[in-house]
Nucleic acid binder design. Structure first.
Length: 466
RNA sequence: GGCGCGGUAGCCAAGUGGUAAGGCAGAGGUCUGCAAAACCUUUAUUCGUCGGUUCGACUCCGAUCCGCGCCUCCA
């Protein structure tokens, strides 16, 4: 079966193809930069990364936009408390976010766009809404009138028909006509940061940011829009209301939402102290690859229980994958080609591809990889794996790693040079030959302490860095 | 209350109308000077509970219990 995704809009799995040509136009709701991103954030950002990689594997070109929300209530509050300008304050967390995502090997979207650099686009969008009669002003702020948009609720599948458009009870008590109406432009208050625009001094509402920037770069209709489940309502619902009111066209064809994660079975919360940033976890000496693996291994629409046992298990699984690759690359196999093992490789790749095509079922994809590894290891032990089988087997591993990206160890500073390691291995081999096992073991232990693991094989000593 | 998601072995989890993937952990074994790596065997008569449909359900339907998310800016 072809590539398909679960579309939140239709609540069904649908075959995917871009609207036009080979280019997938995609938008991801990015971070609000008022703090360091946590493990839950990264779960929702690893999902578009896997998605990107798989779309490219399937031959598509990407035009992927991610926003940075760098003006917003909490940012204003916290930057004021820190006595910093908006720009100074957000720069720190924007930089940290980009570093963290790079450390997790998340591909950079084609464009990363900042809200504060697109105020004119937002103003224009609001003016377009104004012209069509979708807005009203209250206390200097501009609001979106939801009653004007009959299909409001189609993404979150909520029925808002019970809300009366004329239910404006008391103007003095409520600044909105309708409880569901949302702000497009917030009038400047006190010393808040503000932009002087035809709409008056103020700043954009959150929802209009994404609509304006998405349409600015991707046009009226996007192929894919991603975000966490919590954003479906009201944020994405409001994006639809804004964009479709302006263009009269369908805003997004495929809405893909990633589930949240819990930590040790509990919701992340400040009181539980279980909100972990990448820095927290690496400080506990968990590796970035293990974090990436754990986050990627559970399909994006499933709630993921993030545990420290899970992180250790992920690290062990990666070891197994790397050991297999090392064996493929370093062992000597008899000349020739085992055709049935070539077929086994093809079967594995087919299973892997089918799993990813099926709404990015990474868990099932992994299963196909591990089954393959077990079978090939068995064949190697039996001497049935031939030199000619190395290339196809490595090609399959490469395909796996082009999506999961966990096989290459992160580069560590310092440590021994290869030549020093080889010299010590030679010394140990000599000691072994002389049956001086105490000496041999000391060398091995010393190297292990430096993060270099030795393994004796039939063809000599094999080593790897940990 | 409305909308949505989920409850599968010690843990993380896939899956399907035809008789339970995979990873980690545990136990035993092979190999090894010892390790490591690898392999083999083993660990769910059962998929929250109770009914129903069916030749047959964990998979469909109903009920019920439990957990979770959203329902004014939280990934």
């Amino acid at each position: 079966m072809a590539l398909r995704f679960y579309n939140s809009l239709t609540q069904t799995v649908e075959p995917f193809a871009p609207l036009s040509g080979n280019v997938v136009r995609m938008y991801t709701c990015g971070p609000t930069v008022y703090n360091f991103a946590h493990i839950g954030n990264f779960r929702s950002f690893i999902f578009p990364d896997i998605l990107r990689r798989w779309l490219r594997t399937r031959g598509y070109t990407l035009d992927h936009v991610m926003n940075i929300t760098d003006v917003e209530d909490k940012i204003i509050r916290d930057s004021a408390a820190a006595g910093k300008s908006l720009a100074e304050f957000t720069e720190v967390y924007t930089k940290a976010f980009l570093e963290d995502t790079a450390a997790l090997r998340l591909e950079r979207p084609e464009r990363i766009v900042k809200a504060t650099e697109h105020i004119p686009e937002m103003v224009a969008a609001i003016q377009a809404l104004e012209k069509e009669g979708y807005t009203y002003v209250s206390d200097g702020s501009v609001y979106y009138r939801i009653a004007k948009f009959p299909t409001y609720g189609k993404l979150s599948h909520n029925d808002f028909s019970g809300i009366r458009s004329g239910a404006r009870v008391d103007v003095d008590e409520y600044d909105k006509d309708d409880a569901r109406d949302f702000v497009l432009w917030k009038a400047k208050k006190d010393a808040e940061p503000a932009w002087e625009t035809p709409l008056g001094a103020g700043r954009p509402g959150w929802h209009i940011e994404c609509s304006a920037m998405a349409m600015r770069y991707l046009g009226a209709t996007l192929d894919i829009h991603t975000g966490g489940v919590d954003l479906a309502f009201p944020h994405h619902e409001n994006e639809i209301a804004q964009s479709e009111a302006i263009t009269g066209k369908q805003f997004v064809r495929f809405w893909l939402h990633s589930e949240h994660l819990s930590v040790e079975g509990q919701k992340m919360s400040k009181s539980l102290g279980n909100i972990y940033t990448l820095r927290d976890l690496t400080a506990k000496s968990y590796t970035l690859e293990a974090i990436r693996y754990l986050l990627a291994s559970v399909p994006y629409r499933k709630k993921l229980n993030f545990t420290f046992d899970g992180l250790k298990a992920a690290a062990t699984s990666i070891e197994r994958l790397r050991n297999f690759k090392l064996r493929l690359e370093s062992a000597h196999f008899p000349a020739g080609l085992n055709k049935s093992l070539v077929e086994r490789t093809e079967t594995a790749q087919k299973a892997f591809d089918e799993a990813l095509d099926d709404d990015l079922n990474t868990a099932e994809g992994l299963a196909s990889v591990f089954e393959f590894i077990r079978d090939i290891n068995t064949a190697m032990d039996a001497g049935e794996f031939k030199a000619g089988n190395v290339v196809p087997a490595l090609a399959f591993l490469d395909r796996f790693d082009s999506i999961f990206d966990v096989l290459m160890p992160a580069v560590k500073e310092g440590g021994l040079a290869d030549q020093e390691i080889d010299a010590l291995i030679a010394e140990r081999t000599a000691a072994k030959k002389a049956r001086d096992f105490a000496r041999a073991d000391k060398v091995r232990n010393d190297l292990a302490a430096l993060g270099v693991i030795l393994e004796d094989t039939k063809e000599g000593v094999r080593w790897k860095r940990q």
